[in-house]
Simulated assay, not measured.
Amino acid sequence: MSSAPDPGLVPENPAAAYGFDAAYRGAPPNWDIGRPQRAFVHLEETGRIGRRVLEVGCGTGELSLYLARHGHDVLGIDFAPSAIAQARSKARWRRVPAHFLVWDALKLPELGVRVDTVLDSAMLHCLGEAEQARFVDGLASVLDPGGSYFLLCDVKPEGASYFHGASLSRSEIERLFAGPEWELESVSETVFERRASHNPAYLVGVTRT
């Protein structure tokens, strides 16, 4: 899978983009653990990730690099330029053929790629409600029929109108993927690992019909 030249795309929410970009300029943020999340490693080990992969919100690229080393054709996107710069540097020094692009995940229809699998390590749960719906709509433009979207997100207690930190409840996940183009295959309890802790999380598996 080839990627287009980096277009310097301006995110629709530049304040949020700046916040994430600034987080990657100093010490690694607590969600950047220096390796892929174990939940995604298990998916790879059990053969559930297709050959052509798009990782949305890839950060500094550890998951994309891991998958590229295991033979997948991978493109990682993030709207934080400093994160993508680090990911590209890692790929170069490790000699791993992963591709990275500064891109807004709300503009997937403009990306111009088709993949078997989309991976999301805690990106969707950072978006607002309208942005989440728009992202899900855009998924169909890059994911082939029969392909899979796997989401790792922090757990929001059911019925909570507000919960500290970014998170999703099971019912919110079910509503997001209630459309006829999606089949919600699984919502499994797991953990999201951070540098000094871990949170209860869902690993969500969705198939594009």
Rank of each mutant, 00 (worst) to 15 (best):
residue 138 G to W: 00
residue 113 V to P: 13
residue 115 V to R: 01
residue 123 M to F: 11
residue 129 E to I: 08
residue 138 G to K: 01
residue 136 V to K: 04
residue 116 D to S: 10
residue 140 A to V: 05
residue 129 E to P: 07
residue 117 T to K: 08
residue 133 A to N: 09
residue 138 G to T: 02
residue 126 C to Q: 15
residue 119 L to G: 10
residue 140 A to D: 03
residue 116 D to P: 09
residue 138 G to P: 00
residue 139 L to P: 00
residue 113 V to Y: 05
residue 116 D to I: 09
residue 122 A to W: 13
residue 132 Q to H: 04
residue 119 L to E: 14
residue 116 D to V: 10
residue 127 L to A: 03
residue 125 H to P: 14
residue 116 D to Q: 12
residue 131 E to Q: 14
residue 140 A to Q: 07
residue 126 C to D: 12
residue 117 T to I: 15
residue 131 E to T: 03
residue 119 L to M: 11
residue 116 D to A: 11
residue 134 R to Q: 11
residue 135 F to K: 04
residue 123 M to Y: 11
residue 119 L to I: 07
residue 109 P to H: 00
residue 132 Q to N: 07
residue 117 T to M: 06
residue 123 M to W: 06
residue 125 H to V: 11
residue 109 P to D: 08
residue 126 C to L: 13
residue 134 R to F: 07
residue 136 V to G: 07
residue 140 A to R: 02
residue 119 L to R: 08
residue 136 V to C: 05
residue 111 L to T: 00
residue 124 L to S: 05
residue 126 C to E: 14
residue 112 G to Q: 05
residue 134 R to H: 10
residue 120 D to C: 15
residue 128 G to T: 06
residue 111 L to C: 01
residue 133 A to F: 10
residue 131 E to I: 04
residue 118 V to L: 11
residue 138 G to R: 00
residue 140 A to M: 02
residue 139 L to C: 02
residue 123 M to C: 14
residue 130 A to Q: 10
residue 136 V to E: 08
residue 137 D to V: 09
residue 121 S to K: 13
residue 111 L to Y: 04
residue 138 G to C: 03
residue 126 C to I: 14
residue 116 D to T: 02
residue 110 E to M: 09
residue 123 M to Q: 09
residue 132 Q to W: 07
residue 123 M to H: 08
residue 126 C to V: 14
residue 111 L to N: 01
residue 117 T to C: 10
residue 133 A to W: 06
residue 138 G to S: 01
residue 123 M to L: 15
residue 119 L to D: 08
residue 125 H to E: 14
residue 131 E to A: 08
residue 115 V to L: 05
residue 132 Q to P: 12
residue 124 L to Q: 02
residue 122 A to E: 15
residue 140 A to W: 05
residue 109 P to I: 03
residue 136 V to I: 11
residue 112 G to M: 03
residue 113 V to I: 13
residue 137 D to Y: 11
residue 116 D to F: 12
residue 122 A to S: 15
residue 119 L to Q: 12
residue 110 E to Q: 06
residue 116 D to L: 13
residue 140 A to C: 06
residue 128 G to P: 07
residue 114 R to C: 12
residue 131 E to L: 07
residue 134 R to K: 13
residue 134 R to D: 10
residue 122 A to K: 13
residue 135 F to N: 05
residue 138 G to D: 02
residue 129 E to C: 09
residue 133 A to M: 08
residue 128 G to W: 02
residue 124 L to E: 06
residue 112 G to H: 06
residue 112 G to P: 03
residue 128 G to L: 06
residue 111 L to H: 08
